[in-house]
Every structure is written in C-alpha cells, then in structure tokens.
Amino acid sequence: MAQIQVRQNESIDSALKRFKKALEQSGILQEYKRHTHYEKPSERRRRQKLKRRKK
C-alpha cells in the first residue's frame, strides 16, 4: 500500500503528485489496470514479449 505524509504548508496538489508517483513506483497502478479488463492470451504473450525485448 502506497502511503505518504502530507508535509506542513504543503499544497494538496503537490501531495497528490507525490502520491501518484509513489503508486507508479510500487506498481499498484499497473496491477490494477491489468486486472480491470480481460486480456486475451495472445495479447498477454505479445505484451510480455515486448517487455522482455525492452530489458
């Protein structure tokens, strides 16, 4: 679970920006998107192949 502490005199916008960055770094958003919609097995293989190629 991503969590941040709102600093004193910090705007909500900057706190939200830090929170979104923490979510991206932890991989929670990618996991959520992957489970939200059904992905055909062929699309999954294609995505994994591209992921391996990028490394």
Rank of each mutant, 00 (worst) to 15 (best):
F19D: 01
K55R: 12
H37M: 05
K49T: 13
E10I: 00
F19C: 03
Q25G: 11
A2R: 05
N9P: 01
T36Y: 10
E31M: 03
K54L: 13
D13F: 11
K20M: 04
L16C: 12
E10R: 04
K40P: 06
Q5L: 12
K54Y: 08
K17H: 12
A15C: 06
H37R: 11
S14A: 08
Q8F: 09
N9K: 10
S26F: 02
K55P: 04
K51C: 09
Q3D: 07
Y38T: 07
D13K: 12
K55W: 01
L29S: 13
Q3A: 07
Q5R: 07
R46S: 14
H35L: 14
D13P: 02
Q25Y: 09
R53W: 06
S14M: 08
M1L: 11
R7V: 04
L16P: 03
D13S: 14
R47C: 00
T36G: 02
R53H: 06
A15G: 06
R45W: 05
K51N: 14
K49F: 14
Q25I: 12
E39R: 06
S11R: 08
L23T: 01
S14Y: 06
E31N: 06
R18K: 10
L50K: 15
I28F: 11
A2T: 06
E10M: 00
R46I: 08
H35I: 09
K20A: 03
E31W: 04
Y32W: 09
